[in-house]
Write a protein that binds this DNA or RNA. Sequence first.
DNA 1: TCGATTTGTTTATCGGTTGAATTATTTGGC
DNA 2: GCCAAATAATTCAACCGATAAACAAATCGA
Lengths: 409, 409
Amino acid sequence: MAQPAAMPVGAAGVAVRQASLREHNLALVLRHIATAAAPPSRADLAGITGLTRATVSALVDDLITGRLLGEVVRTPRSGAGRPALGLTLAGHGPAGLGLEINVDYLAAVLVDLAGVVRHRAVRRIDLRPVPPAEALALVAELITEAGAEADRQDLVLAGTALAVPGLVSATGVVRLAPNLGWRDVDVPALLGGHPALRGRGLSVDNEANLAALGELHAAPPGPANFIYISGEVGIGAGIVLHGTLFRGARGWSGELGHVPVHPEGRPCRCGGLGCLEQYAGQEAMLAGAGLTDEPTPLAGLIEAAGRGEPAARRALVEAATALGVAIAGVINLLDVDTVVLGGVYAPLAGWLAPPVEAEIRRRVLTAAWSPVTVRPALLGGDAAAVGAAGSVVRTVLEQPAQWLARPVH
Amino acid sequence: MAQPAAMPVGAAGVAVRQASLREHNLALVLRHIATAAAPPSRADLAGITGLTRATVSALVDDLITGRLLGEVVRTPRSGAGRPALGLTLAGHGPAGLGLEINVDYLAAVLVDLAGVVRHRAVRRIDLRPVPPAEALALVAELITEAGAEADRQDLVLAGTALAVPGLVSATGVVRLAPNLGWRDVDVPALLGGHPALRGRGLSVDNEANLAALGELHAAPPGPANFIYISGEVGIGAGIVLHGTLFRGARGWSGELGHVPVHPEGRPCRCGGLGCLEQYAGQEAMLAGAGLTDEPTPLAGLIEAAGRGEPAARRALVEAATALGVAIAGVINLLDVDTVVLGGVYAPLAGWLAPPVEAEIRRRVLTAAWSPVTVRPALLGGDAAAVGAAGSVVRTVLEQPAQWLARPVH
DNA sequence: TCGATTTGTTTATCGGTTGAATTATTTGGC
DNA sequence: GCCAAATAATTCAACCGATAAACAAATCGA
């Protein structure tokens, strides 16, 4: 279940018939409406896509009757002629439910087709001592609540995705979530039968991957190429290449935390030596700043850095330098043009970004003529939940024909 | 020109009309014939693709009249019924010309649709003291020769690709080829007008990228995910994900040689510190083994390692360990399942692979349940030239409609 | 109020695929 | 040696989606 929305319509290996043609063009029209700055008219779409106005009309009619689109009057009219009706994504149609389980909180968000967050719930709770089944029972409560909220707002639940800080197999089994203490937890089996899910299944994915998707949603449309770095207790990375999430050959990509930065350096929990996590992980930063005993150590670190505390500043530079070394390796290999600092790195980006950029300049061969941007994440703490919900919405937008033809319950 | 054959037919963003439908299905049928173990019949193809026999027949007819396919009788017949005619890629149709400029040789190969090398030429020459224009004049001779050979064998030149050990821009300009001493050489401008190219243009690409494509061709068909490591004077990498070459956001991917392995280690020509190239590059290996003064140092290294010379063995283990550290980082990030040792690493793979594998086992989180294979390259010295020719052939196979509709000279 | 203009729909046509019927070519049984 | 069964490939009417051009609808400006 960790592979939603990968193949475009008409992808290699599949025979194409007239029906596929329709599917593709439905998706094409819908995508243009979704990414347009202002609600386009049928005529606009015909101009942009190269399809005839007649064809666009037919496609739009299907999408309107399927409750994916709505019509609006465009108030400031320009020039003569019959006024155009603007087309927008329906605010009362399908919505995606995004869930997140993390070390110290649970989150649920409902996102509609337009990407608007229609419902948001967060439970702060330390989940480390909680066994998986109990944690999932708490998630089930969030699902029930979100399902009721969807009904109240006239939204139809199109699907659900769950973000977990760990390695997730293609079938949704959490193979390993070290910081939660989970191992081989079959989440879809335990939670997929929840009545509020309407039998639409539950996809489970890595937290960094889904946060990267959230970032992709939040960023202006275009062929994005970036690496989203999720600094939590561990360090994960979501890699977006050519506007799509890259999951690796077998779904295990993005383990940035265990990229070696000092091959003979500090031993890591994973059995390796000198993994990035040991130098730039949350614990390493706090230890370096001498803040391990604080009640809210992260807030303490931000405050200390703001005060100019030398130990804090030094710890951040050290962490950022290690991060920069690893990222330089990534860029030499993948040539992404943007590095997004997420998770705990986001509020620290002001101090982390300069040393990271310095390492990139030093170590990336092509940096001289292909600049790399380092910036904090656009979304906040529940980025992964928003990204999870967005991933559901994205499948609807990318495969509208499937949604229109869905079995109605 | 460094981006051939990226978009599948019906890719996102393009309106689809009936003609695109045909294009897609032509490619679909052709691909199945190309990857089949034995020549399939029209009926076989109908069964595999899901298209009707009528449709397949129509498509095949187009491909046969366009000289892309041929019919053969399948000798061992099974059971009753009208015997099926096998379909194979034409051996007299389009062919790709692959060229390679490297530090100490030039190479040219002609590859037909079936992937058979129909012509091969190599000139051993030290190109370091030769200015770019003269080197390209030598290449022009190879092109003339190959063009004549194509005519003699009733092959139609479909296109030409050139492999260069350096960074190539999207327009084919060699931005930097340190070991050749080239900088900003506009190869298509200097060579693209050659009459034997038949006005079909010349694409230029990095040597490691094209060698990886060659490896992809040589390997059994399937969704390949590997990193091809090209150890020459520098260290390049061609990354194949889901069966397609990944070139990075802007075409500068694969600079494995400058991934940091010892952040505060030896200074590198690139200005960085502790780049892989300084530990696992050809020069580092030879220096470590004390063989820099030999006339044929590489052969000397292989021989010394075979003899069990301690210095040579030690140098290889050191190089392989550094390589393994960098590769472990790559796998943690990209989760490729195979590492192909190419270039000078290929003949040394017997000694290099075990330490590389050891580092992977130590440092890759998922290695325990997702094994990684390390193996020598299947192709020999002219892998990049074969891959270059193959990349041309691949564009024809992936976009047969374009080939059929080509302007005939 | 009327012409100009632009939007959106209608209608005949075209192109490509489908499915059933037809033709073609072999094997195997009698 | 002939005929039925079996399998391959082609033919042809029908269908479906896109197209192009004509047409209807709605507004602006003179």
